[in-house]
């Protein structure tokens, strides 16, 4: 078992905490998850801090996507999923019977692997979240849409075509619309599940810059299969392998001086 890593993290980030004591946004304790008989996540312990970019890396099938989907309970859409352990979001267990998933997902936005705008206008895409949550005032909606599109660094590109179908723009732009859509309900956390895996290098770069920008206001958890991306944009990195957390530490430590042999093998490209 490699549950020593989180402990070590806490120790190492102590100096930082003295400067600006960062609170935990997600505290995962002994999380296990099964797809039917398949044990997909094993005894996960992770302490994710607010206003940081936390990257989750690992080879495909290691459980990194499953884990991020567990954080907003989207994983439960797969039939026959079972979980044990707890995930505290802002000190409240998200698996509590009286914790509504809708409530949780209103606080925690998500950006998916493939850009998935709705087949509606750009405006309607971004206004979707506020609208379903009961905000109907046209003026306020206009404001929110503009602010969110600016936040996703795509306002200038689409401000004259807000009524066009969201599928009329490029894939990279679509993904930024999806980020704007997530920003529109001003979430606390943004989960990103390999948000650049379907994009070209230039669009990828734009999204990466955007993530750096968003960090100021949001806590970001990003799953990526691209180690360089993790190294470039994240503050902390968790390395997953076969459903376990092998190592979790400051990103520079993981990439320069990993304590586990398997982490070293993975980041040096020996497998995965």
């Amino acid at each position: 078992m490699t549950t020593i890593s989180p402990v070590k993290t806490v120790k190492e980030s102590k100096p930082k905490e003295q400067n600006s004591p960062k609170k935990s946004v997600y505290l995962t304790k002994q999380l296990n998850l099964w797809y039917g008989d398949k044990h997909a996540l094993k005894n996960i312990d992770l302490d994710i801090k607010e206003h940081e970019v936390t990257a989750i890396i690992g080879p495909s099938g290691c459980g990194k996507s499953t884990y991020i989907k567990t954080l907003n309970r989207m994983v439960e859409l797969v039939p026959s999923v079972k979980t044990s352990g707890e995930i505290l979001y802002r000190e409240r267990n998200i698996f509590d019977a009286n914790y509504g998933v809708e409530e949780l997902r209103t606080k925690v936005g998500m950006v998916f692997q493939k850009p998935n705008p709705f087949p509606k206008s750009i405006y309607d895409n971004v206004a979707y979240g506020p609208r379903i949550h009961g905000i109907k005032n046209k003026k306020i909606l206009d404001e929110i849409v503009e602010k969110s599109l600016r936040g996703a660094a795509i306002w200038d590109e689409v401000k004259d075509r807000l009524n066009e179908n969201a599928y009329s723009i490029s894939g990279g732009q679509q993904q930024r619309i999806c980020i704007a859509r997530a920003l529109a309900i001003e979430p606390d956390v943004i989960l990103m599940d390999e948000p650049t895996s379907a994009l070209d290098p230039i669009s990828t770069l734009k999204i990466e810059e955007l993530v750096q920008e968003l960090k100021k206001d949001y806590s970001i958890i990003i799953v990526t299969h691209n180690m360089q991306q993790a190294a470039r944009i994240s503050d902390k990195t968790a390395f997953f392998l076969n459903g376990e957390v092998i190592e979790y530490d400051d990103t520079d430590v993981i990439f320069s001086n990993p304590s586990d042999k398997r982490t070293e093998d993975y980041i040096s490209g020996r497998f995965g």
């Binding site: 859409l77 998933v101 997902r105 998500m110 709705f118 979707y128 379903i132 997530a182």
Partner: peptide
């Protein structure tokens, strides 16, 4: 596509809202 369902549910929409609006 399932991605559209996921996107809507991921924003905290209820199932019925997702069906009616998406």
């Amino acid at each position: 596509p399932n991605e559209l369902r996921d996107a809507s549910l991921g924003m905290g929409a209820t199932k019925w809202q997702t069906i009616v609006r998406i």
